[in-house]
């Protein structure tokens, strides 16, 4: 289980997270929604130890991430897959090499790596692209390779950073389906998004991040029915001044 307990993070004078508290239950997709710059990606980075909170604690499986040394972080990251907003594929490597890199680090032997590469690419409907380079793929395909790279590690958790941003509706639907399929395999997902259609489709729980904290949280239906002005404005995509006027 992932627990964020009063997490604070600021960059200079700009406070991003201000006492964020959130529990991520196992085996479900938790979607964090919020405006651009509200700290969604920072939250994911704190979970995986790429950023350290200024205050508060992030616990993954009862281990405080901020207290881990280098080897502890490596062990933690072996349980967490991370899908980056722009895929972050290594452009000097083929698709197969991108997926194999994390497996090599875990000391898995070559035949097992080849099998996992094949399996994970089949899962994201990209079989046959092993020898291609990221530059030869479309944006949607790159994101799917990013998911394959995460899934190949057979992680307990996958963190998705804006997985559908910039994709056409059909590719977005494919991505949503992949996130649901991955959850059905027993993987706990934390999805950061401001794409409400996607959030409602994949989220078992949706948490709204606002002013550095979780403002509202509930199921997709509860969030849809919410009469909270901040939630409504976000879901309906109303401009700032309309919110201020209410």
């Amino acid at each position: 289980m992932i627990v964020l307990d009063g997490v604070c993070k600021a960059f200079g004078p700009r406070v991003i997270l201000d006492g964020l508290t959130l529990d991520v239950p196992d085996g479900r997709n938790t979607v964090i929604i919020g405006r651009s710059g509200s700290g969604k990606s920072v939250t994911l980075r704190c979970i995986v130890g790429l950023l350290q909170p200024d205050a508060g604690a992030v616990r993954v499986d009862d281990v405080v991430v901020g207290e881990l040394d280098r080897d502890g972080l490596t062990a933690l990251r072996s349980r967490i897959g991370y899908v980056f907003q722009f895929a972050a594929l290594f452009d000097s490597m083929t698709v197969a090499e991108n997926i194999a890199l994390g497996l090599t680090r875990r000391g898995i032997d070559a035949p097992e790596i080849a099998e996992r590469v094949r399996e994970s690419l089949a899962l994201v409907d990209l079989a046959g692209t092993e020898a291609k380079y990221p530059a030869e793929l479309s944006g949607g395909m790159r994101k799917r390779v990013g998911i394959a790279r995460a899934v190949a590690l057979r992680p307990r958790y996958i963190l998705y950073d804006e997985p559908t941003t910039g994709l056409d509706p059909m590719t977005t639907a494919t991505m949503d389906e992949l996130m649901i399929r991955t959850r059905d395999l027993g993987v706990t997902g934390v999805v950061v998004s401001h794409d409400m259609k996607s959030a409602f489709a994949v989220g078992d729980r949706i948490a709204m991040l606002h002013q550095g904290r979780i403002h509202r949280m509930g199921s997709a239906d509860e969030m849809r029915a919410s009469d909270d002005p901040v939630v409504r404005a976000f879901i309906e995509g109303r401009p700032d001044h309309a919110v201020a006027a209410r």
């Binding site: 980075r45 995986v48 790429l50 280098r70 490596t74 990251r77 072996s78 967490i80 897959g81 991370y82 980056f84 907003q85 722009f86 972050a88 594929l89 290594f90 452009d91 890199l101 994390g102 680090r105 875990r106 790279r149 590690l153």
Partner: peptide
Amino acid sequence: TMRVTEQVDALETLGYD
């Protein structure tokens, strides 16, 4: 370029220093 395109972060999440 790897740093600004998050490839360095991706390396870290895959367990590489």
